[in-house]
Design a protein around this nucleic acid. Structure first.
Lengths: 141, 141
DNA sequence: TTTCCTGCAAACTCTTTGCATATGG
DNA sequence: CCATATGCAAAGAGTTTGCAGGAAA
């Protein structure tokens, strides 16, 4: 349910560089929904020559490929997840921490407080897709 | 269901200036989920002396007061809504347009395509609230 | 040997902030 | 009066991009 990406045709002809492998390893080693800054720190420790721009570019490629999951956090830096399966995220208003919310079973909303001790006071939700006018090939909508 | 705000105690002692009224009028006149830039354009047409900073500050005050609804859009500028009741928003991947999705009745997710012609391919969702550790008064989580 | 990728730095978007001045209640 | 608001400009966070050189395939 999180961010569906067209992982197929956009990634033909992409290469596997050392830098890209470092970024992927960093995301896989960090299980706390790291920001690009945190990923950069890890990558930079392995190889101080890797630039921020390369980390950003590779996070884009890897999330297009479906090898990492991009989590756009409202009013905050994007976060990345080594888990690519469908799950919700919950952000604490106080500490800013981002938590996984499993979506197995029914009624995940009502179960959040019970199962995670997370008191939901609100959420930000935006669907992505194609609107009817665009689907019909009309110019602008 | 959208962005719960503590509209009460944060807004004591706020004033009603001409600029603030202009911002509120602009949001109420724009029914297309305007960005701050679009709101600024309208305000600026009424009074070219009003600065961007004032528009931003007043959008913050007005959404704290509950007079406008702030819609944080992932990877895009925040949008504002004259409607303050609970409803979802859907953003078209092609044209970037933001649409209202009513939440009355059950199973709004499954009804989106049928009722709005909007083909949902994914969505970005982040709950807000208080995590159990913060609720228990622990230092960091 | 061509196409993709990299590093660097600069640019870019959106938003916030410091400061001196103005103004609403 | 004086706390709140304002305008200006500058800073800030997060991210993207132009370019020349470098390295996968």
């Amino acid at each position: 349910m999180a961010q569906a990406s067209a992982a197929a045709c956009e990634t033909v002809g992409t290469r596997n560089t050392k830098q890209r492998a470092l970024v992927l390893d960093a995301v896989r080693s960090l299980h706390n929904h790291p920001t690009s800054a945190e990923i950069y720190e890890v990558v930079h420790q392995q190889n101080p020559n890797v630039s921020r721009a390369t980390v950003y570019r590779n996070l884009g490629v890897l999330s297009d490929r479906g090898e990492v999951l991009r989590i756009p956090v409202p009013n905050a830096a994007d976060r990345y997840d080594f888990r690519c399966d469908n799950h919700f995220h919950a952000k604490c208003e106080r500490c800013g921490g981002v938590f996984d919310i499993e979506t197995e079973g029914v009624d995940p909303f009502a179960r959040i407080t019970k199962d995670y001790g997370f008191q939901v006071t609100g959420f930000d939700l935006a669907f992505s897709g194609i609107c009817s006018q665009c689907a019909n090939g009309e110019a602008d909508c």
